[in-house]
Amino acid sequence: MGKVLLVTGVARQFGGRFVRRVRREPGVDLVVGVDLHPPAPELVGPEGGAVDRAAYAFARADIRRPVIGRLLAEYGVDTVVHLGVSATLLGSAGRSQVKETNVIGSMQLLGAVQKAPSVRRLVVKSTTSVYGSAPRDPAVFDEQMQPKTLPSGGFAKDAVEVEGYVRGFARRRPDVAVTVLRFANIIGPRADTPLAEYLSFPVLPTVLGYDPRLQLVHEQDAVEAVRLAAFEAAGGSINTGTFNIAGEGVLLLSQAARRLGRPTVPVLPPAVSLLARMLRGSGLADFSPEQMRLLTHGRVVDTTQMRDTFGFTPEFSTGEALDDFARVRGRGLLPPERVEGLVDRIGGGLLRLPPTSATRRTP
């Protein structure tokens, strides 16, 4: 018998892409996808002419309900990949339902896994948002550091609570290999994250007086990191524990805006909350308070353990991930190459101008 994986959150881009990737993995017999909504067939099906090795079954289920325990027993699941912790849900779910799914759903899932003797591996998708974003933060967070100020709400607080339940589960089931992956902001051509929504605006509102540092991870690299965590470690690596996952390098928000060709509009700090409420109310973007803190203070994490212990090196750097995002989403109103050409033309024109009387040399 090969591996049997149960994957939550398969209706979203990230979960669907992971299912599509892991079905091609040797030694996998079955992948069971779980979500409130069925994924689009092309999201979990074969890609680029690849042949799937593993069968796929979808269970339309709410992880807040006891049905998860029955699924684990029915299919003899040995690996659970929990990708269902998210900043937003599909459809018109409000913040309270998002929190219930993230926190209560994770509690129920972990309770079911604890009672399932067949499960030997658990992978949980988390976020570097657990470190928060505050003015007195250290320059770089590593996995052992605690935030100066704990997240007070939103997705970041959900992730902190979920990680706490995962640590409790690991103590109760020491026979289960547990991996928590704290992803930096995931971006890419098909990413459906709040930051990707923000960077898709034709004009980017920024906080006046701040230019935060951003760290990104390409969606393709994020999927690959989860795949590595779902299998036995190879080559001397250790893939159990908690790991920061991010691409190499850091970009200032102003640098990211220039690379995307999107002009920025600085907003006074007192008006930021009002703008965020307007954007959320209009449905244009999920501008949560934690998102605004990120766009004010930024956040950078150390990835030494990712490379040296987990044994993973992302294919895309932070800058390359942003460039790939721009390649598909399109350049903005001020594409860098057009701006450079304009500057060159202006500079060339100035050089050709005749000297003025003020600049003529006197005999």
Rank of each mutant, 00 (worst) to 15 (best):
R171T: 11
F201E: 05
E248W: 09
P212G: 11
G311D: 08
L279F: 13
G283A: 05
A184C: 11
T88Y: 10
I63T: 14
A256I: 05
H297S: 00
V44T: 15
R12V: 03
P26T: 00
P194K: 03
I186Q: 02
D192I: 05
M278V: 15
I346A: 14
S200Y: 00
P270Q: 10
P46L: 06
Q215L: 08
D344A: 15
P263R: 05
L228V: 11
P117I: 04
R352N: 12
R327E: 13
A285R: 02
D35V: 01
L89F: 05
A40I: 01
R95A: 15
G49S: 12
G33T: 04
R21F: 13
D192F: 01
L351F: 09
Y56D: 02
V160L: 13
L6P: 01
R299S: 05
F312T: 04
E161P: 00
G349T: 12
G281D: 07
V67T: 10
H297I: 05
Q220I: 12
V67M: 07
A156I: 01
R299N: 07
D302W: 00
N185C: 11
T264F: 06
V301A: 09
K99W: 14
T356S: 15
R136D: 15
T240V: 15
P135H: 07
V4N: 01
D221F: 02
E74M: 10
V300L: 06
P41T: 08
I104S: 14
A93Y: 09
